[in-house]
């Protein structure tokens, strides 16, 4: 069972601001899902390599050639707030 403190830690890592109710709900549901996932412990995976990619691809590269840049207006067309050429954000510290 996930404690509220654990749920809060995960929420902070996820940058999610949860209400107490949500914390309880997610805590419950995550605990259940993780409990269900415990069935993986039945598997002996000692010698099994992990599969991060299903296709056996390797060494995919591009050449070092400059392509097109976005025009400034397109680069910034979705900016929630801007200041001239810059994206603007609230104070960082």
């Amino acid at each position: 069972m996930l404690t509220i403190a654990e749920v809060e830690h995960v929420a902070l890592l996820s940058r999610l601001d949860l209400s107490l109710e949500e914390k309880k709900l997610y805590g419950d549901q995550l605990s259940k899902i993780l409990e269900y996932a415990k069935m993986l412990d039945e598997l002996d995976t000692g010698d099994v390599p992990p599969t991060a990619h299903v296709l056996p691809l390797k060494n995919v590269y591009r050449e070092d050639r400059v392509g097109e840049h976005l025009p400034l207006e397109k680069a910034m067309q979705n900016a929630p707030e801007r200041d001239g050429n810059f994206f603007k954000v609230p104070r960082i510290v």
Partner: peptide
């Protein structure tokens, strides 16, 4: 316990 284990189990499924 979770992510790496899942990647390994994925191999078995494949």
């Amino acid at each position: 316990a979770y992510y790496l284990k899942a990647l390994k189990a994925r191999t078995l499924i494949k």
